[in-house]
Amino acid sequence: MEQKQINIKDKLPTHKAPASMWDRIEQQLDALNKEVLNISIASKLPNYTAPSLFDRIVPPAKTKNISLIWLQLAASIILLVGLGFGFKQFKNRTKTQITYTVENNTNKTIKSEIELSNIDADFNEVLSYNCQTKPKVCQMPDYKELQKQLEDIEREEQNLKQALKQYKSPEIEMHLIRITNDKLKIENYILNLFS
């Protein structure tokens, strides 16, 4: 009887790459790019040969002593002036009074302005506002891909938060910090699409 050929690859399970992996790769790429940039700048700059001026660099011993005396004198003067100023400030301090008043703000329109400019404004609110004003951006493949990434990362963040409640392990905590950083990066990428 002829046996049905089974493709082993189709049978095997697939595994998901860790969510924080992109962050690690990006950090390494940044470091490498910086290194390359430094090397290329350094190689482009001209090199000079130092002139032989050793005698001029090391002055005779006598001159050195005189300049040292002047330096000591200058330091003493600065110290005296400083002490005098400090004493004067101390005397004035007793005369100083601090007053403060409370002012009520009755202008309601300021509240909405603050809400718009508040840097802690909810990301989703900002995003829905941006999608209303620039709907084309929200149809872009880049936007959709980033949204998908954000959903995945938020799911993982929730799972980690749950796990942290149960186990309180520092490793989970570290992982959660990484994930949150990744999430902020992706949110930043999304917001940059609108600029």
Binding site: T14, A17, W22, I25, E26, E145, Q149, Y189
Partner: peptide, 24 residues
């Protein structure tokens, strides 16, 4: 052109298949 977003897309496209292969 060193566009991070594009690099991230490329990574996302292949990451799970390559991780599976490497893990095995």
């Amino acid at each position: 052109n060193n566009e991070r977003l594009a690099q991230m897309h490329l990574f996302n496209k292949y990451k799970d298949a390559m991780y599976t292969l490497i893990y095995r």
